[in-house]
Design a protein around this nucleic acid. Sequence first.
DNA 1: CTGGATGCAAACTCTTTGCATGCAT
DNA 2: ATGCATGCAAAGAGTTTGCATCCAG
Lengths: 164, 164
Amino acid sequence: MLELGSPNNKDQIPARMSDMATINSDQELTALLHERGQRVTPQRLVIHRVLRQRDRHLTAEEVHEAVKHDLPSTSTPTVYATLDLLADLGLIRRVDAGPGPALYDARTEPHHHTICRRCGQVEDLNTPVDFSALYGAARTAGFDPMQIDVVVSGLCANCSAERT
Amino acid sequence: MLELGSPNNKDQIPARMSDMATINSDQELTALLHERGQRVTPQRLVIHRVLRQRDRHLTAEEVHEAVKHDLPSTSTPTVYATLDLLADLGLIRRVDAGPGPALYDARTEPHHHTICRRCGQVEDLNTPVDFSALYGAARTAGFDPMQIDVVVSGLCANCSAERT
DNA sequence: CTGGATGCAAACTCTTTGCATGCAT
DNA sequence: ATGCATGCAAAGAGTTTGCATCCAG
């Protein structure tokens, strides 16, 4: 326990920042998986399709529910493994926004998130932010940055109003 | 299950951004807890002291271990409840950096974090970033921002080297 | 004294593992 | 044919809950 740090010790090579790709069809996904030496399975296609078709951020469990509609035998470990794979390949983003389950998002273009501390609601923020100094500082420290995640936490409009 | 969003449904009123305070002694913490109508207990003092005295980010379990040295009977739920309380009061920061346990940090002044995707190591980045546009966008959406967390994920110097 | 804080044990949520089978290449 | 992906069941990590006792105000 407390094995400090083994969040991703698969031998999967994570995506470079430049690998971030927006996928809009099963064909594109198929091509990309092949390019990266990954197998194309019905589960992978359906899971990515679910994320493309929904416009909100989904938990692994929500993905699982939706996927079972098309592919009823799909298992929980497959959903997690596939979400991990797609995130490592840069084809989806994993959003860690505080307590509770991780969220997954097919929008790979840079954007940020707000999370409400009371109700947990997560929303997108599309405002661009200049991170060049931050990337520079990371690289100076020998760190090879792949992705940057910004979470603005606070109170959403509803919860803010309820609080008087 | 999947009760979408109840990360913090205590009636604790979260800190305003301006409430962020750097505490350097038990006296200061005592005064601040009193000011905010909170009780001062030995557990709360020791838990905050542990976070002040260590220079890295600590998990709840690491805090618990350290606290037991001074206050052997301290329980796990108390550690979690106290870390939550201190974070809600703006006296410590909770850092959610991907999978694995949450980290807690006595440094409340704005700073950012890098997390290595392979080994999970978390480090500080002190480079300032201009978030005014982001805050503006959040407020325009009716969101009341309290804190902003930036996580740069990628490969740390060691893991980057090992990968060839 | 009185309500919030604590300790204990157990439950709960989210995610991963081990192993046998199946299917993409 | 080969070996990675899948499904199943079970275990694991991290955190929370319920309830009785305790102590700060």
